[in-house]
Structure formats: structure tokens, C-alpha cells
């Protein structure tokens, strides 16, 4: 973990799962991963959050939308573990429901962005030439937009809502994935087994599907994990600015926004969802690091 810590995704094009000599389709070295204690802990933290999200309906002590004005702004108590907000809604229940939205949006966004990005990257890398130049310059252009402003602008013209939010944020995820996919494709397409397949008359589609795609799938996992934290933060930022999922739906960004209004009165309103957000983002970052280390053959060589 300490050896090559670069937060930027563009450096990840150096990842080359193909040089890893394991014969199975999965190029993640699970043995190495299991030794990474931080990675394991964060995996469990994420599983915990996922379970919370999946079982939210049954485990929340209160309905997250039910208002009870008699009980507003309560502190920590036996009935309300984390207190209640300005409308007397139970904060813990709202945070648990917020997990659901955050994870759902993050998952959809990352998958959409990575799929489109990988498609663009594979086409650019495989075809090369002018098409490659045009596609990659477009990726560069998208990369220069500050994601938050870009999302704000698009949400202004589209109607805000879950689908729009997912599509808009995923646009920001495309360039990073495209670069990684292109790098890997470039590396693989000139190797012997691809040449052999070509000389045996395999179609381009077949080569991409059977030779290039399996080599990139693992990077997809790493990129997806690393991007998820970025998406969760952006979504919370957009909700905080008031253009994300509209209230009263409980999302962490909305809760922090509500809390901001009453920050002097009760800072914990913004603090608790903020802590939940921070823990999830840390766990995702650490898991991404651990997965990258388990995939990256360069690092593995150094550790042994």
C-alpha cells in the first residue's frame, strides 16, 4: 500500500493484468489481498453498509419520513439513538435509508460510466489512428470540466431526479475508465496470442470479446471501487447544493443540507450523516487501494 500511492486514476493505465501469469479468468491475487488487513477491514465495512442498505426496510426503528413535531431536535436517547431532526424524524433511520440511495446511485453511476468508458477505450485502442486521436481528445476535454459544475449545468437543463443524476455523474467517470481500457488494449493487441487468433481468422468482435475484454474486466473492478467514493462525494455535494435527489427523500447530502440550516442550534444534524459518508468513502478508498495492489504485478514483485 505504501509503495505507489497515487490518487489519480490516469496513472492506473500502467496496470497491466495481462502480465499476471495466473491461468484463470480472475487476475486478482486473492492470497495477496487476504494479507492486506486494511483492505479486509474496509471490505467488511462496505459489506456492513450494503447489508444496512438491503435490509433497511426491516431494521430501521422508525419510518424515515414520518414527522413528529412533538419530538423535534431531540438529543441522543434510548428511543432515538442519534436523536431527531427539525421535523422530529429519527436520524438513525434516515441515515440507514440514505445509505441505500448513496450506494444505489454510486453503483449505477460507476457501472454506466465504466461500461461506456471501457467501450470507448477499447475502440480507441483497438482501431488506433484518427479515431483514437479524436476519442481521446474528447476524453481530455471532458476531464477539464470540474465535475460538480458540469453536473450542475446538465442537471439544470435535464430534469433533476435519480436517472438524470446517474447519467450526469457517470459522464465524469468516462474519461478515466477510457484511458485505462485504451492502455490495456494497446498493450494486448500486439501480443502473440492476439496475432495468432487473427491469423486463424477470428473476427474483430471475437478478438475483443474473448481476448481483450477478460483482461480488462479486473481493471473494471478496481476502477469501479475507486470511482465509487468520488461519486458518493459528488452526489452528496449536489444534494447539499440542492440539485440532487429532492427532499424529503433521505440522502446524506440532503441531511447535511438540512443540518446546515440549524448548524448553530444542533451541529450533530449535519455531523452524523457526514461521519457515515466519511467512513464509507474511507472504506472504498482503502478497498480500491488493496484491490489495485492485488492486481498490479509491479507492486507484487516488490513485496516478495
Amino acid at each position: 500500500m505504501q509503495t505507489n500511492e497515487t490518487p489519480n486514476l490516469s496513472t492506473m493505465k500502467e496496470i497491466n493484468p495481462a502480465t499476471n501469469k495466473t491461468s484463470s479468468n480472475s487476475f486478482i491475487d486473492w492470497k495477496a489481498f487476504r494479507k492486506n488487513r486494511l483492505g479486509l477491514v474496509s471490505l467488511f465495512v462496505i459489506i456492513f453498509f450494503v447489508l444496512l442498505a438491503l435490509t433497511a426496510k426491516w431494521i430501521v426503528p422508525y419510518d424515515p419520513l414520518t414527522q413528529n413535531l412533538l419530538e423535534k431536535f431531540q438529543g441522543i436517547s434510548k428511543e432515538h439513538w442519534l436523536g431527531t431532526d427539525l421535523n422530529g424524524r429519527d436520524i438513525l433511520s434516515r441515515i440507514i435509508y440514505g445509505t441505500r440511495i448513496s450506494l444505489l446511485i454510486a453503483l449505477c453511476t460507476v457501472m454506466l460510466g465504466a461500461t461506456v468508458g471501457f467501450a470507448i477505450g477499447i475502440i480507441a485502442g483497438y482501431k488506433g489512428g484518427l479515431l483514437d486521436d479524436i476519442l481521446m481528445r474528447m476524453m481530455d476535454a471532458i476531464m477539464t470540466f470540474p465535475l460538480l459544475l458540469f453536473a450542475l449545468m446538465l442537471l439544470m437543463v435535464l430534469d433533476s431526479g435519480m436517472t438524470a443524476l446517474v447519467i450526469v455523474i457517470s459522464v465524469g467517470m468516462i474519461p478515466g475508465s477510457a484511458r485505462i481500457a485504451r492502455g490495456t488494449t494497446l498493450d494486448i493487441k500486439d501480443r502473440e496470442f492476439v496475432k495468432a487468433a487473427k491469423s486463424m481468422g477470428s473476427s474483430h468482435l471475437r478478438i475483443v470479446l474473448t481476448h481483450i475484454l477478460p483482461n480488462i474486466i479486473t481493471s473494471l473492478l478496481v476502477v469501479a471501487t475507486m470511482n465509487m467514493s468520488l461519486v458518493i462525494m459528488t452526489e452528496a455535494g449536489l444534494s447539499f447544493l440542492g440539485v440532487g435527489i429532492s427532499p424529503p427523500t433521505p440522502t446524506w447530502g440532503n441531511m447535511i443540507r438540512d443540518g446546515f440550516t440549524f448548524i448553530t442550534l444542533k451541529p450533530s444534524l449535519a455531523l452524523y450523516p457526514g461521519i457515515a459518508l466519511t467512513i464509507l468513502v474511507i472504506a472504498l478508498n482503502l478497498l480500491g487501494d488493496a484491490l489495485r495492489d492485488a492486481v498490479d504485478p509491479h507492486l507484487k514483485g516488490q513485496k516478495k
Binding site: 447539499f240 448553530t264 451541529p267 449535519a270 459518508l277 466519511t278
Partner: peptide
Amino acid sequence: SLIVLAAPAFLVGIFLLIVFSV
């Protein structure tokens, strides 16, 4: 540094504002 990287800027900003200005 992991925690600082993960905490969203708006949250940090809000709390700095509360503590050191309010």
C-alpha cells in the same frame, strides 16, 4: 490524511465556520 481526503470539503467548511467563526 485518509480521513481528511475522505471528508467532503463542504462538511469541513461548515464545521470550521461553526467552530472558528460562530
